[in-house]
Design a protein around this nucleic acid. Structure first.
Lengths: 340, 340
DNA sequence: TTGTAAGCGTTATCAT
DNA sequence: ATGATAACGCTTACAA
């Protein structure tokens, strides 16, 4: 049984209020008694009971991060950013993620119920509807990540997917002066793929670069799938200033490796670009030109917003959009084409 | 202000003890009053205050996971496994990781101090000494991950690094019948590199395969470094039944890519194998033969041990060793050599 | 079966 | 500057 405040008080010959004052550095305590109390604290190894403290203060200095999944670099980077920011602000981070068996709703509900957290950062992107209602019943302050809910009046942090994809497409068209671009997306229902494809259509349209429905493919974001697919199609793709725009780095890497295996040189015979700037982008030869999605920053920003709301619950909802960054490496041939 | 137990009591015309009994399903409550209480609970949306509860029960149903870093697949997989197991057992997971500025000691100390957690799972592998003392002062139950502290009597879960590396080396020698193996390690001080190098020496010695100090290199576990290094040395490495044993998949992948760039065929001209079985092992062409380190399982096992100790604090310390698994793919040439 | 009341370890308000 | 004492919301003997 750890020592409690009144054991400290007894040992230092003071009242518990004085001990509390010393611990919390509130009010004034005379130099002499403070020393006595601090000595007693050290001798006993006293640490305030967090439950009792929370009961009085109604806060735990803990925030929760709810994610749909924990697989892969994307989520791990969000966690990393969130953790850093939380620590910086004096909070601890509690992770929650659905298991195979249970849906996001019950996860959220359960997590919210225990409610020892001061607030929640919730990622809803992959989640099937019904979230709005659950969020409506929330008593805890929360911020939403990667939100695509319009008109909601809660804090949120999103990433400008369209802007990032447009930056890439414009680089391809304006700097690399590509004559034809093949789009390699994830599933057609994926929100990110939709945004990236939209940019593809927009920018090619704006620059009168012709493309047809048969230039657009939908795979599943996986390296292996892209590799196999590229093995079969890479010979059709080869051409003067031709380029493959893959919707993520894994697929882009698969295409590059398949091209190499087929004797197709990247970027000379075929340019290839990716998206996300995950670790694999730098582990592909040639290194991938891609778009850096600030994942860690998104996690950090979410926690920052949340904690700032905890500090001032009345402030108006803050919707932050994070800007991706075009990363030009070698796979697009920008250096080779010499146009930039 | 959320409703408290006595608001429920008032509304249901019972005492607070009865409400408590209904909530905790302890003792017996008559069917009639139970219904009344449950109705009141639903109407008010009552949820027991976790702090008050913890104050009485002295537990929060939360466990902490302390990691030296959050970068990369290794830690993210540990978190994933730990999270899954924690949820399974009805616990929430709190993450803690040092930031650049602070050392593991202060991290542990701070994290332990807040002590709203019921117990801690602590990874100490990368940590500079002094941990033993800190651990000695712990009041919370804890389990240590990837422990190399001998004779300690706390719960721990480790990975049989030596066994895994020996399995790989034996595969190379016995199945692939290599005539020479180059070792590409991380820093000389890294505990994993040390274990893997030990296996290298042991197995080659046991099978009278000659090797010299100049066959052993120490890099830094990074793809880029290995790629650049291999670019300079790959021509020296080529040879009948020669093989590069890299201490992790990233470096192995770098070697493979550099070999390809130099026109050296893997595995025909030079076999290459890795370690860890991270995502990159399957994203290298040819896919890497490697050793799967059960990272998620380690996280899960740690939480399992911890919770089992929480349930029965008196049980003897449990030291679990997890077995890595040899994964034979194509980069070792086992299929080509036809010896297995 | 249900109610009363005594803690649990804090912080906060008020006297002194 | 310090000390009583009343919350905070809950669980749990013990009593009825």
């Amino acid at each position: 049984m750890p020592p409690s405040i009144d054991q400290v008080a007894r040992r230092a010959n003071v009242s518990i209020s004085t001990v509390s004052r010393v611990v919390n550095r509130r009010n004034v305590v005379s130099e002499k008694t403070r020393h006595r109390v601090e000595l007693a604290i050290k001798e006993l190894g006293y640490q305030p009971n967090a439950f009792a403290r929370g009961l009085m203060l109604r806060k735990s200095e803990m925030v929760g991060l709810v994610l749909p999944d924990l697989h892969g670099e994307f989520y791990s980077e969000i966690i990393r950013g969130a953790n850093m920011q939380a620590r910086q602000l004096g909070y601890s981070l509690v992770i929650a993620s659905a298991r195979d068996t249970d849906d996001a709703q019950s996860l959220l509900h359960g997590f919210h119920g225990r409610s020892i957290m001061d607030g929640l950062a919730i990622m809803v992107s992959e989640v099937t509807g019904g979230i709005q209602e659950v969020l409506g019943t929330f008593r805890l302050p929360f911020v939403v990540l990667d939100d695509d809910i319009d008109g909601a009046d809660h804090d949120s942090v999103t990433i400008d997917q369209l802007g990032g994809a447009r930056a890439m497409m414009r680089h391809l068209v304006e700097t690399c002066r590509v004559s034809r671009v093949f789009f390699l997306g994830g599933l057609e229902t994926n929100v990110d793929t939709i945004a990236r494809l939209k940019a593809y259509r927009q920018v090619l349209g704006e620059h009168q670069v012709p493309f047809s429905a048969s230039d657009i493919y939908h795979l599943d974001y996986r390296y292996e799938t892209a590799w196999e697919f590229a093995r079969q199609h890479v010979s059709e793709w080869v051409g003067e200033r031709h380029c493959v725009f893959a919707a993520n780095d894994e697929m882009a890497s698969g295409v590059v490796d398949a091209a190499a295996a087929a004797g197709v040189k990247v970027p000379e015979d075929l340019a290839v670009v990716g998206f996300d700037d995950t670790r694999v982008a730098r582990m592909t030869r040639p290194p991938l030109t891609t778009v850096r999605v600030p994942m860690a920053q998104m996690g950090a920003k979410a926690i920052e917003l949340l904690c700032s709301r905890l500090a001032d619950p009345a402030q108006p909802a803050d919707q932050v959009s994070l800007q991706p960054e075009l990363i030009v490496r070698e796979s697009c041939g920008a250096n080779v084409c010499g146009a930039g």
